[in-house]
Design a protein around this nucleic acid. Structure first.
Lengths: 140, 140
DNA sequence: CTACTTATCTGGACAAAATCCAGATAAGAA
DNA sequence: TTCTTATCTGGATTTTGTCCAGATAAGTAG
């Protein structure tokens, strides 16, 4: 896995640093749909000296290069995931914030065409489903 | 209009205050798809002594009562609008943030059914379309 | 393998957006 | 008119994230 990641980084002209690898591995193995602070803690298990700023820098850099994907549910800190390139969507529990992937229900990305685009050139349709997860259903 | 708003407020057991009316009117007449800071300024034209906190309190209260609707495009402060109850969607320009309403393209609210709901009970599908508005297209 | 360029990292200050708090005010019920 | 308490005011605080300057180290060129 490290090897593939290194190739992806070099292909994007990014240096391969241990901080960067720690962040990517934290998201991949511990941080699916987790926020930056969680990722800081998870990545520090791998590299204790890691600075908070390096995590934020890398989350931004990796997101902009398409190596990570950022999702930002209303009113919550941004979450990160390593599944990129397919514009899938997300379903978020209103109570516990647990988040799961939802495949695009109408064709490929961008998967939705509005009836009237007001002259805009649309390149993405981002969908967030809101609901209550099985655990929170039974605990209410 | 004031009269209708007063009825809506009383129906929600909310007191009719000038601060509250100033906020609602600011959103209705000047603040479509604007953020809280803009609404503070707009509402102060009507009521100069209005505190910032009263605006935030009211935006929260009115949103929770369904008198205003809050939208939160990724990475931006929350925006507010008076069009409520139809779960329409939004199209946001990546460059200038201009935002327009988009009618639900697939039936009524919630307008989308994912293929697999993971056991969640879904009550809303929130869609944000991202693109480039006509003005920003021509200025690039 | 060594030197060099500069991307990246560190630590601390700072900013944006919004909430919390305590006392003052005023809406609306009695 | 009085009273209760929702609401408002002003200031401190929190959360999430960025900016900055100097130190470090990745990758390139010799």
């Amino acid at each position: 896995m490290r090897r593939e990641v290194e190739i992806r980084l070099r292909d994007s002209s990014l240096r391969v640093t241990e901080q960067r690898l720690a962040v990517i591995e934290a998201v991949e193995y511990e941080g699916k749909h987790q926020d930056a602070e969680f990722i800081v803690r998870a990545a520090r298990k791998r590299l204790p000296s890691l600075s908070r700023q390096a995590v934020f820098d890398n989350l931004n850099t990796l997101t902009s290069k398409g190596i990570l994907r950022r999702i930002e549910p209303a009113g919550r800190p941004a979450l990160y995931e390593t599944r990129v390139g397919d514009n899938h969507h997300h379903l978020v529990c209103r109570y516990c914030m647990s988040t799961v992937d939802i495949d695009c229900s109408v064709g490929s990305s961008p998967c939705l065409q509005p009836l009237n685009d007001h002259g805009y050139v649309i390149d993405e349709a981002e969908v967030v489903y809101w609901g209550v997860c099985p655990t929170c259903q039974s605990s209410n």
